[in-house]
């Protein structure tokens, strides 16, 4: 085949439409590099750089970014780069833990409602609708207020307000899968209800649930920051990104921009990187190579 198709003398192959692919690759690579850098910084900087992020240096308070302090210092002279890295560490922990919890809860609820259908589905979805009508932050504030400040109440507060959307997504996906003939075929092949749910429905919704979970990590970080900014999240001495921004409020009005800008960037950059990766991943996991071959 090769000798005739490709090797024929004078065969000039043309291609078109390569640019979509290369921008996609660029986006993927940029996101991957940024996210890797973030995670490495969080994991490696604290053990390697044996500096105290709490070290107060009143002689060097509110210094602008420079050689000694690349991100500048805060109002008691603590190094902002170090504070940001530690803050990101806490925020990422909260984000990942909350996203995982919310996804597990949401998937379980959504899959149960979708797979069982009938009155179970109707009842569960009414509850979900009712909870969704309460503003997230308000409910989050209630949950945090019931406990002493700390990491886990914040995780619980974010997780318990964010499983609703996952439950909706998973239920809708299960319902659409359930109507497909391959589920009919499984039923006819003697599969039990449990087997249909676990072997045929759940694996089909996992890509969606996983994408939702990944996208929820930055969202949960934002939520943590918002709670901390309101003074309801983590204890004020803990360096979380929300606490850092909250502390910087006063200096921003005085014209010192760096204590606000850098923690803000530490929230935005991982958010964009995660969104970019999740988008690329979603394109990849869809088994649709076929359409490229057009068989």
């Amino acid at each position: 085949m090769a000798d005739l198709a490709a090797g024929r003398t004078g065969t000039v192959w043309r291609s078109r439409g390569g640019e979509g692919r290369s921008t996609r690759t660029l986006r993927l690579r940029t996101s991957a590099v940024l996210l890797t850098a973030t995670v490495l910084a969080v994991l490696l900087v604290p053990p390697l750089v044996r500096l105290d992020q709490q070290a107060v240096d009143l002689a060097a308070k509110l210094e602008a970014p420079g050689w000694d302090h690349p991100f500048g210092t805060d109002d008691v002279g603590r190094d902002l780069l170090l504070r940001c890295v530690y803050g990101l560490r806490v925020s990422l922990l909260v984000g990942v833990a909350a996203a995982l919890t919310a996804t597990v809860v949401g998937t379980a609820v959504g899959a149960t409602a979708g797979a069982l259908g009938g009155w179970v589905d109707r009842g569960v979805m009414r509850v979900v609708d009712a909870l969704s009508s309460v503003p997230h932050l308000l409910m989050g504030v209630f949950i945090v207020a019931m406990f002493r400040p700390g990491v886990w109440p914040v995780v619980a507060s974010v997780a318990l307000t964010h499983w609703l959307s996952t439950a909706r997504i998973v239920r809708a996906e299960v319902l659409s899968l359930r109507a497909r003939p391959h589920i009919d075929a499984a039923v006819s092949g003697g599969a039990s209800r449990w087997r249909v749910t676990v072997r045929h429905l759940l694996p089909g919704v996992l890509p969606q649930a996983a994408t939702a979970a990944v996208l929820m990590v930055p969202h949960a970080m934002w939520h943590e920051s918002a709670l901390s900014f309101l003074g309801l999240g983590l204890p004020t001495h803990t360096a979380s990104l929300g606490n850092l921004i909250q502390e910087a409020r006063g200096s921003l009005l005085a014209g010192q921009w760096w204590p606000t800008l850098f923690p803000g960037l530490f929230i935005i950059v991982p958010t964009l990187a995660v969104a970019g990766l999740a988008g690329a991943w979603r394109e990849r996991i869809n088994p649709r190579r076929r359409s490229e071959l057009m068989l």
Partner: peptide
Amino acid sequence: FQQARLSADPR
């Protein structure tokens, strides 16, 4: 069924 594509679990 009619549509083989829909009656096969894609995984």
